[in-house]
Design a protein around this nucleic acid. Structure first.
Lengths: 227, 227
DNA sequence: TCGGGTTGAGCTGTATACAGGTTGGAGGGT
DNA sequence: ACCCTCCAACCTGTATACAGCTCAACCCGA
């Protein structure tokens, strides 16, 4: 998450495990054992447990007594709920915007674009992930309402594993789409139009939701969402 | 929160402390000591720490090394952000509604209304709190999108302390407003109109936000929000 | 061979001991 | 009288020991 460097070591473990889940290094259903993580990070179980409990509170994992901590699979229905809400949250970015976005954001996004354009297609999983992470950070930082910013960040990580699974399925297609999104984002950031940025975010989130729904079996009774 | 009865004892402590914060039994800036809570609940520090860390993750408290766990005061700016978002979340309830609300909700709300009407004006703090808690539970259960339901619940508890402070200021006025809200809610629940229920919720949240802004010093550069 | 009861390894939940950090106040110098 | 320094009490952060739970493999009888 976009938390600043925290004092306690639990935050570092939180971020590390969160990233592993988002990059599917820990796939759905994977079991996390506290002693293993403790050994890996060179600490005792106590900070590890803190991190895992926080991940559980955010719904990314589920810990069962006597078994371990499982990476939450997320049934299609829940996935649909999450994406539905995330789309609306993106819309709120524009509604709650207070002013134009600063030019530094456009600069930062241009830098990301330059780095991305230099990559081969498809890039490696790590590079792909990092580009999207940077894009997210820039957009997220623009959100004026602090609470909404936190929520937008949280739900980014909630859907990240599914979105990343799309990359594993069709790397070239996903990288092309990501590049297109970044180029468009640079354009609107240069315009300073926060509302347009939010609309872009909403559009791309909705599009990603459709692709994810196709890949993971769309939930509920809305088969037409898959186009 | 509206979590079902959990297995671990930490959840019970979480709810208890949360309620104390919401009812201002623990005012802003109050310090929570782990050993005290541990003694009170008859457990060790471990489950207490779990509960406090979860409260910290939700932003209700802030724990500082060597000092203790402080109830987060929430500056006016943050308060404005929280209410702004909560109003929008209420709006989303209607947008993400899938069907009419069940008749049991109307029955339940009628029961709450009956209990409330039987109370003196102003009622005791405990009774006032309980009535609002019940009202919230009924409305919250109607939210179709599970993620939005969780968020609506969370932000209810985030603003609860401020709203409850209004009661302490003007008990009769707040109870009259609450009664009015419940009566209206019964009406629209009987109609089964989920969108109307959401609009009601949005209106009442916005109205509460204005009263809170007046009481706690409105933040930002929107003095007209105070009417 | 198959089914059921049992056992045991391994995991999380809880309790406790120790290390590190903060704060308020006592005490001495100016 | 005032201010700076130092310290001791206290609180959280961390590590470790123990209790309770789960599940799968195993053993034994039909």
């Amino acid at each position: 998450m976009s938390d600043g460097a925290e004092t306690t070591g639990a935050a570092a473990i939180f971020r590390a495990v969160c990233e592993r889940i988002c990059t599917l290094e820990l796939p759905f259903g994977a079991v996390l054992r506290e002693v293993e993580l403790a050994r890996e990070f060179g600490v005792s179980r106590t900070p590890v447990r803190q991190a895992l409990h926080q991940l559980a509170a955010f719904g990314l994992v589920e810990t069962r007594n006597g078994v371990g901590t499982l990476v939450t699979a997320g049934d299609p229905e829940t996935l649909a709920d999450i994406y539905e809400l995330r789309i609306r949250l993106a819309g709120l970015i524009g509604e709650l915007a207070t002013g134009p976005c600063p030019s530094e954001s456009a600069d930062a996004m241009r830098a990301v674009q330059a780095r991305a354009e230099a990559l081969p297609n498809p890039p490696g999983a790590r590079a792909f992930w990092q580009v999207n992470e940077d894009r997210h950070e820039i957009v997220n930082a623009l959100i004026a309402n602090r609470e909404l910013r936190g929520l937008h960040d949280l739900y980014y990580f909630k859907v990240a594993p599914f979105w990343f699974a799309l990359y594993a399925e069709a790397p070239e297609r996903e990288f092309t789409l990501l590049l297109r999104e970044i180029r468009e984002m640079v354009f609107w950031l240069e315009q300073g139009d926060m509302k347009a940025v939010a609309n872009m975010q909403e559009n791309n989130t909705a599009m990603a939701a459709r692709r994810v729904a196709v890949a993971f079996g769309q939930g509920k009774n809305e088969p037409d969402i898959a186009q």
